[in-house]
Structures are given as C-alpha cells and as structure tokens.
C-alpha cells in the first residue's frame, strides 16, 4: 500500500520479460498496479498482446512474445503509465519511449535532464525521436537515450535551458496567435 501514501510505485511489482536486461528491442513496462476501471491498453493493441480478463478493473496482462513495440498502448493509456524500454538501444545506451504532454515539445537530438519517478534529476540524456499521432490520442511520445543503469528509473524529462532561452522548439508564434489558432481549430 506504500504507493497509496507516496504516489510512487515499486518497480518490483511490475511484470518484466525474462532476462530483459539482454533484450535489444523495445518492450512495454506497464506501471499499472492498482485495480481501476480502465482497459484501453487491451483493446488498442493490434497484436492482442495485452489482455484484461473478466472485470474491467482487473490488471492488464502482457504476452511479451506477441508485442512488436509499436507503442500505441503508451499513447492510449489514460494514466500515462506505460513506458517502452529498449535496454540495449546501442552499445552504450538504453532508450525509453515516454508519454510527454507538455508544450513546447523538445526536438530530436536535444539534450534533456533526466528525471526519475521521485522527480529527482539524474543527469542528462538525448532525445532520439518525437512521435505525434492520432493513434496516441494527441499524447506525444518522446524517445530518450539514457544510461543503461537508469533504464528502470527515468520516467520524465526536462529541457535544458540555454542561457535563459528555452531549449524547446518554438513555433515562432506569440501566445495570442497560438490561442487564436486554437480557437479557430
């Protein structure tokens, strides 16, 4: 029940593939350990790798052999609780695909501060890819390279500001223009 006090889950309660440290592909880490009425992860999966048996409040179960790492579940999850990790993204680094619902979005190759579940800064990483798709319900998915030993800890990023300027991509529009655009949409 500790997470009900802190809001921080214990990663040991999350189901991971066998010998996951050796994998060289992305697989989902479903950080959903509380019985809540929710099941998009199970019906959005094109490979039917994630299932919820019986009541909608039961926890999702995953068959890692069926998963192709498409990340649709990470985009759909209303709790933003699904992350995809590739422990051996390249020789030196792991990579994490995480939902990131903040503007402005980081850009590819940008350096970012890595943040863990507790909100603590844990060094720097690099953005590899940004994905925006209607399949993800407008939740951008950001792929970030992280040191291998931090792969099960990093769950958020923050932009590194360059001398007072936002490191994030700027649309070049003023706040008023952006609002007018939103209203028009």
């Amino acid at each position: 029940m500790d997470y009900k006090k802190t809001g921080i889950i214990d990663i040991n309660k999350v189901v991971l593939p066998q010998n996951w440290e050796e994998l060289t592909r992305f697989f989902p880490v479903i950080e959903c350990i509380e019985k809540i009425p929710c099941n998009p992860c199970s019906w959005c999966c094109p490979k039917e790798a994630i299932t919820i048996q019986g009541d909608i409040t039961n926890l999702p179960e995953i068959d890692f052999d069926k998963c192709t790492g498409c990340a649709i579940c990470a985009g759909k999850c209303p709790g933003l609780a699904i992350f995809l990790v590739n422990p051996n993204f390249d020789e030196q680094y792991s990579a994490i695909i995480m939902p990131y619902e903040f503007r402005p979005l980081p850009v590819e190759n940008q350096k970012v501060t890595l943040i863990d579940r507790h909100g603590n800064e844990r060094g720097n990483g690099e953005v590899v890819k940004i994905r925006l798709s209607s399949a993800f319900e407008k939740t951008p998915l950001v792929t970030v390279k992280v040191p291998k030993e931090l792969i099960m800890e990093i769950r958020h990023i923050r932009a590194i500001k360059k001398s007072g300027k936002s490191g994030f991509r700027d649309s070049g529009k003023t706040w008023e223009e952006q609002l007018a655009q939103q209203v028009a949409n």
């Binding site: 997470y3 809001g7 921080i8 889950i9 509380e34 709790g79 609780a81 579940r117 769950r155 958020h156």
Partner: peptide, 23 residues
C-alpha cells in the same frame, strides 16, 4: 486522510514532476 484518494497513476504523474503530496 492517510492515503491518496485518487488513482495512483495520476499521483505518479505529479510525483515525477517533483510535486509533493502531503498526506
């Protein structure tokens, strides 16, 4: 109350943004 009443996934989002929760 001694526990977070809402869904823990919502609480987890706040915690990773370094927002403290005082139960």
């Amino acid at each position: 109350s001694p526990y977070i009443g809402g869904y823990s996934v919502h609480a987890a989002k706040l915690r990773r943004m370094q927002i403290p929760i005082y139960t």
